[in-house]
């Protein structure tokens, strides 16, 4: 793969965080300014591989995420490219003001890389879930937000985030998710990927929900419905062009995210649609509740983070479109 020492074998059939760990080593080899910051989770975020290879470039702050994020700002002012790692709920909420005031406001070149996002810490329960982080981060000017959909995209996103000048929030889950991209896939910040062409309805998804969206499109196809699937890997800056095109060309939109429907991808898309090309937008996601505790599969079903939810949302969106057109 261009620009990385990782092979496809390193990437396929691995958990997101394992792949993330290997991607950190790869970028560390290539970019000497990169330093890794952790808060007593360097093992579970898989920064340990980097730490082993570059001990002098790894800093563990103990269980002190606010200090870690503020220190990252200090590193950045001295020309380093700090990658601050932690569980998503801690990076976005415990260290929230440091992210906004110390990094986004002065526009410093810090990479916030969050693992265990969404409900991927399923049995950890609400304290360890992060279904609010996109909403919080979206409201910070200067910040780029990336939610990769599979292992390959995670590797590419780590590289591109480091190459990008300015603060980035990279949001990852924890476990294995299906691969949805082929190896020649090109990742560009702010340019969404059309995973599947279609003219009846558009499903705009991010992260783990991209695979669900593709499965939903398969089901819809069997019913004669031609669904477009867009991987909106960059939540900010949002690919407005692709959103407007989806609204104009298909007239009905479903969004899907492993996040509260309040403040997430769905609202970002709805904002663009309502300003530029009004069309029904149905949001699939966590419906403004805390998610409870349970095995990940069960929680996903209970919360409706499934292809079935996307299928029924697509039909609703289409019926809204047709009732409007009547």
């Amino acid at each position: 793969m261009a620009g990385t020492s990782l092979s496809m074998k390193d990437i396929e059939n691995s958990s997101i965080r394992d792949v993330f760990g290997r991607a950190l080593v790869s970028i560390g080899e290539r970019v000497p300014e990169v330093v890794l910051l952790g808060a007593d989770a360097i093992g579970s975020t898989r920064g340990a591989l980097f730490a082993k290879q570059f001990p002098e470039r790894t800093f563990n702050f103990g269980i002190a995420e606010q200090e870690m994020v503020a220190a990252a700002a200090g590193f950045a002012t001295c020309g380093k490219i700090p990658i601050a790692t932690a569980y998503a709920f801690l990076l976005s909420m415990r260290a929230c003001e440091q992210v906004r005031t110390d990094i986004c406001y002065p526009n410093l070149n810090v990479k916030l890389m969050a693992t265990h996002a969404g409900i991927s810490m399923a049995t950890g329960g609400t304290t360890h879930h992060a279904t609010e982080d996109i909403a919080i981060m979206r409201s910070f000017a200067n910040l780029t937000i990336i939610v990769p959909a599979d292992a390959l995209e995670t590797v590419k996103a780590v590289e591109v985030a480091v190459e990008h000048s300015g603060p980035v929030y990279l949001r990852m889950g924890r476990g294995e998710i299906p691969n949805v991209h082929s190896r020649d896939y090109e990742f560009v910040i702010g340019r969404s990927t059309c995973m599947r062409a279609g003219g009846d309805v558009s499903v705009i998804a991010c992260g783990t929900m991209v695979a669900e969206a593709i499965a939903a499109a398969d089901s819809l196809e069997k019913e004669g419905i031609d669904a477009r699937v867009v991987n909106m890997h960059t939540i900010k800056p949002l690919d407005q062009e692709a959103v407007i095109a989806a609204a104009l060309e298909t007239g009905a939109i479903v969004t899907a995210e492993e996040h509260n429907i309040v403040g997430g991808l769905g609202e970002a898309v709805a904002g663009v649609v309502s300003e530029h090309a009004p069309a029904p937008v149905i949001r699939v996601g966590v419906r403004d509740c805390y998610c409870g505790i349970g095995p990940e599969d069960g929680l996903r079903r209970k919360l409706g983070l499934t292809s079935e939810s996307i299928v029924s949302a697509a039909k609703r969106a289409m019926s809204l479109k047709s009732s409007r057109n009547r």
């Binding site: 220190a71 200090g74 590193f75 002012t77 020309g79 700090p82 003001e97």
Partner: peptide, 25 residues
């Protein structure tokens, strides 16, 4: 001005990051 400030309690951890980076170099 080496750092934007105003909200209290931010400067010392930022300074620690700077001190680590300068020492590395």
């Amino acid at each position: 001005c080496d750092m934007s400030t105003g909200s209290l309690g931010h400067g010392l951890p930022v300074a620690a990051g700077m001190a680590l980076a300068l020492r590395m170099d």
